[in-house]
Amino acid sequence: MIPAAFDYLKPSSLSEAVQAYAAAGEDAKLLAGGQSLLPILRLRLAYPELVVDLGGLAELTGVSDDGDAILIGAMTTHADIASDPLIKQHAPLIAQATETVADRQVRHRGTFGGSLAHADPAGDLPAVALALEAELRVHGPRGERSIAARDFFLDYLTTSMQPGEILTAIRVPKLGEGWSTHYEKLNRVAQAWSIVAVAAAVHRSNGTITEARIGLTNMGSTPLRATASEQALAGAPATEESVASASASAAEGTSPPSDLSAKADYRAHLATVLTRRAVRHAAGI
């Protein structure tokens, strides 16, 4: 299909982009990798009058060290993320989840920031950002601000970014000593979206799980934390049995969708199985 006609702008600086985007208001859309936006335009599910392409903003790409965190430019592609040494070292969960996204073609175009801004609960990276307690930096007509991941995702395809705001970077705290992570995903074919996936970060000291952060993909209209399981795991012995029993409550408080690929009860079941596997893997049990 062919998108409806729109104007196209490719700014060469962030301030120019912010200005143009804010001025156009509701009628404008930002273009990152286009992997989600272009299908929407082609199916004529959206009719923007202006498309602002962020592809010319070099300051929005790349990964840098920011002390106790790493800073990931919103326009960094999935392919670059998956092979980045800083991410491998300090946030391997992001690399692992990113490698499961779609196929090579999509990973070479799609961006980390675009995936978060798009806020599709079936996307793999929102739950990862939530589990890693990332901070999202946005620039708007009123300057810069930071939004915690837990406050960022409001609803299906809806974030707390205000009109005119652009996501510029994502700050991911470095996981220190004793932390390890795992992403566990179930999808039907390699390039398909997750039916359910679980992002786990687990801190272990000696025989005890001291803390677990568990992000759930596709278990509601936003990415969610498996709070009940997290609480059950905190301070629990690092054994198969305790992980299994804590994981049984992974779907508590979620409202998974029923769609073509799965009904809600099956998703709820998957959340428990995948949480158990993700936590065991991360904790090396």
């Binding site: 179930l186 029923s258 769609d259 073509l260 690929s261 799965a262 009904k263 099956y266």
Partner: peptide
């Protein structure tokens, strides 16, 4: 034989499932 259909078949065992065991099909 989708994962959901297989899982439901196991869950229901020899009790015969209704048609359309998977998805909102």
């Amino acid at each position: 034989c989708t994962p959901e259909r297989v899982w439901r078949a196991i869950a229901q065992g020899a009790e015969k499932s209704e048609r359309d065991p998977g998805g909102t099909v």
